[in-house]
Amino acid sequence: MKTAIMLLGFCLAAGAASASPLAAGWQALANYRAVDALRIFDGVRAATDTALAREARFGHGVALLDLQPVTGAQLDEARRVFTELADIGADDAAQGARFFLGRIAQHHQPQPDPVEAARQFRRLVSEHGNSRWAQAALSRLALLQIYELDPAAPPAVRIAEAGKLLAQARTPAAESELHYTIANALFFYRLPAADALPHLLAAERLRQLDWPTRVEVLVQIAELSRLAGDRVQAAKFYRTFLVENPRDLRVYIVRQHLAEVDKPAP
């Protein structure tokens, strides 16, 4: 009876147009109201509709990760819920649960466990390679391979290993993120900057970069092209940058460099 009343209340709160009785819970969580979200998810966990109940349990786990302060007991509880969901079933909740198992090991635990995080992400990629969860996991896995898993290996080897993940990218967004991640690592480890250029060009071509990343990438491509002597490509990207970002603080330097590459070759 209590559950029914709560469900009715939540349905009313979510509005008649809501597709799922859990929508209000997700909306609360999107607004950083984990307590409200938990209350809503927990009210639906016992629902007879299996899909609904699984989504509610998944929501319960995600909300636990955001309920401040996040305690060790909460993490254990979230891990238990996600493990159950991921091990039984292959639906969105199962895939999402596997993703969050990786994230708990990667970032939530007081002592991160990159090996366990990579194991979860690899399993997700191998079992549900085309899913949005697996595609989101790819660049996270690449970061683990580059920076965490084998710090004794030379950076170039680690980056090359991460590069193999490109073959698993099924969405332009995942491919773009991987290219960017690799290029960024090449800069960070002071490896030949020219090696970053093809990755940056590929990332730009996919048109998936968020705006701040794109601004940076346009300048990087132009600069690396200029340094490599490709004046035409450099000029093209300097111009694109200026058209798209007329008020950026780099405009002065970009104009200087554009004037330089626009000069007739000596």
Partner: peptide, 19 residues
């Protein structure tokens, strides 16, 4: 992570291809 996933689940539209 939590907020972005919640935002996508809250949307009545079909699940997005990317998170």
């Amino acid at each position: 992570d939590s907020a972005a996933v919640a935002q996508q689940f809250a949307s009545p539209a079909a699940p997005a291809a990317t998170l």
